[in-house]
Design a protein around this nucleic acid. Sequence first.
DNA 1: ACAACACTCTAATAATCGTTAGAGTGTTGA
DNA 2: TCAACACTCTAACGATTATTAGAGTGTTGT
Lengths: 220, 220
Amino acid sequence: MSRELKNLLYEHVARVGKALSSPKRLELLELLAQGEKTVEVLANEAAIDMKLASAHLRVLKESRLVEARRDGRFIAYRLSGDDVAALWANLHTVATEHLVELRMALNTIVAEPERLTAETRLSLLNKASQGDVVVLDVRPEAEYQSAHLPHARSIPLPELKRRLAELPKDKEIVAYCRGPFCLMSNEAADLLRKRGYKVSKISDGVAEWAAAGLPVEISD
Amino acid sequence: MSRELKNLLYEHVARVGKALSSPKRLELLELLAQGEKTVEVLANEAAIDMKLASAHLRVLKESRLVEARRDGRFIAYRLSGDDVAALWANLHTVATEHLVELRMALNTIVAEPERLTAETRLSLLNKASQGDVVVLDVRPEAEYQSAHLPHARSIPLPELKRRLAELPKDKEIVAYCRGPFCLMSNEAADLLRKRGYKVSKISDGVAEWAAAGLPVEISD
DNA sequence: ACAACACTCTAATAATCGTTAGAGTGTTGA
DNA sequence: TCAACACTCTAACGATTATTAGAGTGTTGT
């Protein structure tokens, strides 16, 4: 008697799983984890047709992972909650942990599969608050405004070359961007390293950072 | 140039999402979160054909969420790691949090949608360790052996009626089972309440408990 | 009121998935 | 060595899903 009701429960959860079963939707979700964005922006950044982006966003909306809001002629989407960003972080962590193919694919892109531990994160937070390291956010400024790591400084990747003067040569610099699948911080680190800066990169984005239970800052 | 490589990453993660997109697979995953089980047991408990169970388990295995091990004539499946159980807990939490339909469906089954907070869990752990409450595990004994909440006592639901003498009438009893979608602890609580016991039920199973960062016990 | 814009909705196709049936594989006990 | 067992694999079907095109909707600026 309760079997059909139980099946109903699993079916509802499976709706969320289904929303997470398409690469494009995951990419959109990661972009939305950086902050609210319009369909046009999302389509551009994910390099897909706007109609297709709209269709995928509809699925995400029906599974209640994202919410939409009309802003003039634009429609802006955002995650339904911080727990959705945490779910995304959890999902790609499990995938990276267990899927050998994913780890190999990651290795062909960046020779750095190491994940941050609770200690490295805390020590970074500590050093950042004391000014011992410069935490560098290389995402677009709007995403920095939406949320960023504590004490982080914003220099979007395209502006980095002409804003080098803002960075100290004697301090350690730690660059980050959208998360483990984002290459902006790699490019930034390569650029800075060539110019003689002491720079490293971390794979965390704000979603991963928050999912680890650490605080993020929001620019008013 | 890096776009195809990036797509590859999302495709791999989507494989895990795809594995989570079928109600039957989620049910199997929840059963496996209780411990290692054979295909036959899984098929019986999920009330599906063994061939179908085998097919679903194959998908789960290909997405590396579960592992298989031959044990004589039987093949036993288990989760690939604790992070998989945590992912399942995270998934159904997000679903329950945001999907109105799921919450309503849950309400028709149990009139109790409340989720445990960090404080309730800690206070339960505290009271249990001091013997102020009896934590009662009503799952099959094998699942208790595999992992159970700290200080929990095992009385499988089918044996409860004839083992009432083991439970005190003056102490608070807290029953639990496989998780928020499992009804065994509800049945147990109903039974005990009718007999005059001071009993309540929590929605946590070992997966939810562990996902909250709390320790679980394993019987040797 | 009208055109331009930023989407969304509907419809239609090809590709993929869930489920079942039947044959095949590896293991155990006689 | 053989039968029984506990699965897995292959093939096949109907049912979904991804993607695109074309028409439709609500908003803004003139």
